Simulated scan of single mutants.
Amino acid sequence: MIAKWIKFQILDTERQDWTRGYDTARRYFEREGSLDVPYEHQEGAYPLGRWLSDQRRAYRAGTMPSTRADELEELGMIWDTADTAFAENLAAARAYHAQAGTLAAPRHATALDKPVGQWLTNLRRPGGLGKDPERAARRAEQLAAIDPDWNPGQWGWTVDWQRHWAGLTALLAAGGKLDEITPGVTYRGDDIGRWLARQVRDWARLNPEQQHRLGEVGVKPAARPQKTAARLSAKAGAAKGSDAFTRGVVALQQYIAREGRTVVGRQHVEELPDGTSVRLGVFLSNHKNRRDRLTEQQLTALANLGLEWAA
């Protein structure tokens, strides 16, 4: 009697659950033509995306009966476990974006119990989307469908800048006025007012696209008083230093893309496409020693390339 009860309560119930999932997957396939189902997708009240993910885990662990594997195979099951994990994290990214309006998540951010901030940070690193070019392109498209600016480094600015920009647009969309967004006005924990004041003050350091975006919402550079020759010379020196940092970052990006690592010999010199060269080893050593004097944007740019000491 006990054996019959166990069979009825566990085995028959499990079989019914599997049949229900399979029938739901079959109807989805007949309608959509594939089983490329987002992890968070539900067919009515049934969590089809999660069920398919569970089947992939069972298949990978070797606990799935061969008959079931064959039936799913005939139906068009996608077994790629790497894409399965990516799909689950992508669902978390969608959930985060729905809340924050951006994928410029800080590293500690989570969604659907997944560390989405660290996951996105890893994807932005050279080779982070995978070694297979087709898969990497497909993943980039999926992320861009959620947020075209998911990887702000391609535009020339940091994740931190992008997150504050998203916060500014959210405040304006909610009815805020630019003159009301002063230091101390925050959005999701970020001081947007202080950031905005810095953009106005340091307008000349922004790239053309940053200036364009800010200009579209009415932000203008601060009026500058006439400078003395000494102050002009100091500004030229600062600009030269900023240009040197930018060239160093470009050289490091090129080195990582080629070598797949961030360890650089002290004497290494990186040749840039424009014919100039950067003493990359010296550049990294000097900036590591002067870490406390780097700006927040400079530290973020280096951290996004995988330099742990800059994080």
Rank of each mutant, 00 (worst) to 15 (best):
A257R: 09
R291C: 04
P208C: 05
D202K: 10
G265K: 13
V250K: 12
Q297W: 11
S242E: 15
K220L: 14
L232R: 14
L294S: 06
F245R: 04
Q211C: 06
Y255P: 08
L232C: 03
E271P: 00
Q298M: 08
L232G: 06
L252G: 03
S277D: 11
P208L: 06
K288I: 07
K220A: 13
S233H: 06
T276A: 12
G241F: 08
L280N: 09
A234Y: 03
A239L: 14
L252Q: 08
N207Q: 09
Q199N: 00
K235F: 08
G218Q: 06
E209A: 00
R205C: 09
V282F: 02
R291P: 07
A251E: 03
D292H: 13
R293Q: 13
A229R: 07
S285D: 14
E216Y: 05
V278G: 05
E271D: 08
R279A: 15
R291W: 01
G237P: 01
L284M: 00
Q199L: 00
E209C: 03
N289E: 13
R266V: 12
R198W: 08
A230E: 13
G241N: 11
V217L: 03
E216M: 13
G218W: 07
A229H: 12
R258W: 09
F245Q: 00
G218S: 11
P273S: 07
W203C: 02
E216H: 11
R261P: 07
R201P: 05
L272V: 09
K220C: 02
A236D: 11
K220M: 07
E296S: 09
S285F: 14
V250Q: 14
R247L: 10
D274Y: 03
L232Y: 01
D274A: 02
E216F: 02
T295R: 12
R293E: 15
D243V: 09
T262Y: 07
